[in-house]
Simulated assay, not measured.
Amino acid sequence: MPLDTGRFLADLDTARRIGTYRTGVHRPTFSAEDMESRRWLAGRMAEAGLEATIDGIGNVFGRHPGPGPHLLAGSHIETQNHAGWLDGVLGVIGALELARAGLPVDVCAYADEEAHWGDFIGSRSLIGAFSDADIDAARNRHTGEPLRPKLEEVGLAGRPRITIDPTRYKGALEMHIEQGTQLENAGLRIGVVTGIVGIRQFRIIVTGQQDHTGGTTMRERKDAGLTAVRLLGMIDQEFPRVCAERSVWTTGRVALEPNAPMIIPGRAELVFSFRDLSSEVMDRMEDCLRRVVQESNRRERCPAVIEEIGRSEAALSDPAILAAFEGAAEALCPGAWQAMPSGAIHDSQILARVLPVGMLFVPSIGGISHHWAEDTKREDLVLGMAVLAEAARRLLA
């Protein structure tokens, strides 16, 4: 059956109205608005002839009842706080439209990709990598509320959790907004994702001496905040010598104690991360980071210690899926697409542990995402849908 792009856009608009915030959406995981959107989606899946289930961790899964071979397609439906209307849900409604067009596709909205309650709890659960002990340990990152009572509150406690059988699928597809400016700046309309970057995250603790800002001379001071600032300056100076063209790094947290205007900071905590598609490049960056901390300790009065607190490996796109996306893009928008890595992380990175995966990007206006002003031209949404469907047909042929 042909695609119905009007229906595809109408469903995106309907989802946008569940939790509307300005021109975006506020639909954090397991909020009332999020649960409403999951029930709405399950209804749309059932109308499409899929066997629809909301499982015990919140995944909304629509199983195609017909013969294979099958594809798995989807993304997430919850949002960051006060954020955009397309991040995640585009891939879910795109996957649903594949099924409505008659393709043998299982559709899934993977729960909590936005990490309100943990790291990829939905997709990890689907591949059997999120245990009951993980549920007990999970907390809301904003409030500290435990996950298990929340599941009971929203009516998910006691429901079985779905685990996928990898032998059912030829691969997993995910359409997403770019969340960057590469496509727009190049005047292109489609990005074929070559892989999803890995991330390494570290906590750096600088210890000084808390003291009075007036009575302590500059010669005597052990200012942890000042040492932390200089250390970050050294990182920013040294990383360009070892990074690759698309490497990025971020200090996402700087916390001073006691963080008072009349007290010299006695402690500084930094949370620092970097991303790249190449493990070799990230090894160089990690070695550089550790050498910078070592050099800081040689120079400074306040010692610093470094601890790794998170690591995810890069996931390369499957060659057959990559070829299908490239062929579809060239057929439908010749010369208006490019191959590119994903600098953001996605559920496909988790699914890649057990399935071949591939992703497709459409442009983000101004590169804006995780903000209510996030948007994409409607003609680019329609083109992305068409490329996704053509690639799926090629893979299933």
Rank of each mutant, 00 (worst) to 15 (best):
S75Y: 03
E178D: 03
A315M: 15
R189W: 06
A304L: 09
R394A: 15
T20D: 05
G225E: 01
E36T: 14
H64V: 04
F361D: 11
I18W: 02
A224W: 02
A323L: 08
L316A: 15
G88P: 09
A314E: 12
E326H: 00
Q182L: 11
A224S: 06
I177K: 08
A336E: 14
A46T: 14
M282W: 02
G19H: 01
I93C: 04
L351G: 02
L151A: 04
A386R: 15
E47G: 03
D134L: 06
D4R: 12
S348H: 04
M1Q: 14
A111P: 00
E280P: 02
A46Y: 08
L383D: 14
L151Q: 04
I321P: 05
G327S: 13
R203I: 02
Y110M: 15
M385K: 03
G208H: 14
V25N: 09
A315H: 12
A10S: 15
F361H: 13
W372L: 10
A99H: 01
I57A: 05
T163I: 14
L9K: 03
F274Y: 08
T216P: 11
H142Q: 06
F61N: 00
I135S: 00
I57S: 06
E238I: 12
R298N: 10
M218E: 13
I235C: 04
M1C: 13
M285K: 01
D318P: 11
P265Y: 06
G187S: 12
Q237F: 09
G366C: 07
S37K: 09
P265S: 07
A315W: 13
A133E: 14
V89I: 15
P356A: 01
I235V: 15
V292S: 08
L50S: 04
M282T: 09
I263M: 04
E51C: 04
R27G: 05
W337Q: 04
A268E: 00
F61R: 00
Y110Q: 13
A344R: 08
P356E: 02
M45V: 00
L147R: 08
G68Y: 10
V305P: 07
I264P: 01
V292A: 01
R27H: 11
P166R: 13
V248C: 04
L277Y: 06
L381D: 14
E97N: 07
E269R: 13
A10G: 11
F272P: 00
A109H: 05
R189D: 05
G84S: 07
G191L: 10
R246P: 01
A172P: 07
G6D: 13
L98N: 09
V293F: 10
R221I: 07
S273H: 05
T251W: 00
F120W: 15
